[in-house]
Design a protein around this nucleic acid. Structure first.
Lengths: 205, 205
DNA sequence: TAGATTGTTAATCGATTAACAATC
DNA sequence: TAGATTGTTAATCGATTAACAATC
């Protein structure tokens, strides 16, 4: 059983390795990676060892190879298809951001406001929320990103589920009946800031 | 020593309790709270017990009282002063969102683009990044939120630190030399989505 | 008082670390 | 080969759970 924390750290290692590559470094030691990512060297080796032996004993890890390996583990070596629901302030900011990430393919965005239908944010067309179910039948997606008010979230979740979407990230907190087999993750900036504030207060003492 | 996971869960309990209050419920059992928040009842009691005995044996927790207690623990029973640096797409979305949260007081926002200076997002005035240090001397802040390109982050962090800001949330990933005593937290939607995708894939099997 | 649920202790579970044999 | 660093094992650490005494 692989700890979820391991998966989160793989993302961190990956970003660190990409920076290393950009700098022209071609080998990375577990100790270097550990130092740059703020963890211990044995944890880096342990994390990687869950998925196989990527290193060369006595030498370290080949940066290029390890990047590809981690991308493979995370499944981002091929495009991940995403639909976005809600194109308000936050939604359109996310939409613009995600379009910059090479391995995300944003299929379409959906909004209830008919004045937005047919318009684009970057390359992505905005459609009616009513079309979501039908759209997914033609265009299967792996992930959904929701940035609408809390009241509408349950309906959207159900439609996404029927459309075959297995993972959803919601920026609206709501009490949701999550279909068995779907993964729902809430992202709430207020909660994150509360947590940060608590840690910062403790630090001061 | 209080686990960080406990603090994160307090946020979750708090939001659940507020919904309970809005529904007119005035007592909450650890078992109910646990079920709604997706954790075990003993964990709820354990989490709360780190900070004292808030419950009534045989009865449960008074919703109103517990809300106030948790707010006190998190320190959100008084305004938390925040400055925002970077008022692009994401920055202005965050700015609007944070203004809706009653216990955050957004003192000002800062941007390098001089065409934005003097304008407002909601109630918050946009100022020049060059003013940040001086502004903080007159207007102390607890937290900083950064949404600018990665290259500028280190400078901003240093200015915030000199201005007495102890906690910073950055939406730009960058390799940062964090001053001793400051807490820096990165929020990266791409990483979150990668993690979600991994969990969703596993779920399917 | 009897019934119920908290707060707390001890047991369990899981994740991280330290150490070292394997090996490039 | 000698030196270095990985991959892995066992020990440690910390967080969660189960159980129950305390008590409203």
């Amino acid at each position: 059983m692989i700890p979820e924390a391991t998966i989160r750290r793989l993302s961190v290692y990956l970003r660190c390795l990409r920076r290393a590559k950009a700098r022209g470094e071609d080998m990375a030691l577990s100790s270097l990676l550990a130092h740059r990512c703020g963890v211990s060297a044995s944890l880096v080796r342990k994390d990687l060892s869950y998925f196989g032996g990527f290193g060369i004993k006595g030498k370290g890890y080949r940066v290029d190879e390890l990047i590809r390996s981690i991308e493979g583990i995370l499944g981002i070596d091929r495009p991940i298809r995403v639909v976005q629901i809600g194109v308000g302030n936050l939604g359109s900011a996310i939409l613009r951001y995600l379009q910059q990430v090479p391995y995300f393919k944003i299929l379409a965005a959906f909004d209830i406001d008919e004045r937005k239908w047919g318009k684009r944010v970057g390359e992505v067309e905005i459609r009616s929320c009513g079309e979501l179910g039908e759209f997914l039948r033609e265009n299967p997606a792996e992930l959904g990103v929701i940035s609408i008010p809390p009241d509408g979230v349950q309906d959207v979740i159900d439609t996404l589920w029927r459309g075959g979407v297995k993972g959803v990230m919601s920026f609206a907190l709501a009490e949701i009946d999550v279909p068995e087999g779907m993964v729902l993750q809430f992202v709430d900036i207020a909660s994150e800031l509360e947590f940060l504030y608590y840690k910062a207060k403790k630090q001061k003492k």
